[in-house]
Simulated assay, not measured.
Amino acid sequence: MGPVFKKVTHFIGRPHNDDEFVELEVYAGGMVAVEAELVFELGKEITPGSIDTKGPLKHLINAVYAGVEIASSPVIDLNSYGPTAIISDFGVNQGMVVGAPIEQWDSVIENIQTSVFINNEHINSAPSNNVLRGPMAAVAYLIDQAAARNITLPKGCMICSGAITGVHDTVAGASATVSFEGIGNINMKLIPVTP
């Protein structure tokens, strides 16, 4: 688990029209990647040890949104150095975009086709529950890790599910669209900044 900083968090709360986009700063000459994700919003405060994550967790969730994580680092080959390097770079997280809410999410996410396009090229597609151990696994993991560290998770905390279609490398200056079938698109321009 790792932080998503407020300055790179973008809450849209609806799908983009074709001519709309959000600008996301990424490192020029560095590592850049786009990840389609679900974003879970906690509906209640969770104190350490108060939740058995082996039981049902859906009652803890206020809403689930179509989302994107943008990864970027000044070090272009950071991932080749292994987990310790990634951790030292805050998980390489350079932003979270929260799109449209998913109505009746618990019964529909298995069937939502999720696709990533970079510079108008289709990169990959997968159903939106296509993450390791299912999308609720990220919620359970965060609750357990926070409990072990005596951290209270606040109501309204936003949790990214993990990459649905994969981690898709690109470069500063690219455009990208993540499409959640029946939910809508998130359109992005990746704006280069110098480290």
Rank of each mutant, 00 (worst) to 15 (best):
L78T: 10
F11S: 03
G182Q: 12
V92Y: 03
E121H: 13
H122P: 00
E45P: 02
A137S: 14
G91R: 09
T177F: 06
G156K: 04
E35P: 08
P101Q: 02
L153H: 04
N79R: 13
I123S: 06
E23I: 02
F180C: 07
N185Y: 03
V167D: 08
S73N: 15
A137R: 01
A66V: 06
F5E: 12
E103H: 14
H59F: 13
A126E: 13
E35L: 12
G182I: 12
G82L: 00
A28D: 04
W105Q: 10
V34I: 15
I102K: 05
N79W: 09
F40Y: 15
Q113T: 15
G55L: 09
N187P: 08
S107F: 07
H16T: 08
P135I: 02
S115K: 15
G82E: 05
N187T: 09
I109G: 13
A138I: 06
D89L: 12
V116F: 11
R14H: 14
H122K: 15
G184S: 07
V108N: 04
I143E: 07
A33R: 12
L57D: 11
Y81I: 00
V26K: 02
V22W: 05
S80Y: 05
L153P: 01
P192T: 12
G156T: 11
M136H: 03
T152A: 02
L24G: 03
D89V: 04
G82W: 00
M158V: 05
L153R: 10
E37M: 03
L42E: 03
M136D: 04
P154W: 01
G67C: 05
A176E: 01
D89N: 13
G156P: 08
N124E: 15
L153N: 02
A176C: 06
T84D: 14
N119L: 06
A172Y: 11
E45H: 09
L78A: 10
P56Q: 08
N129Q: 02
A85P: 09
G29S: 08
I86F: 07
I51M: 07
K189A: 00
A148I: 01
T114C: 13
A138C: 04
N17Y: 07
R14Y: 06
A126L: 09
V167C: 14
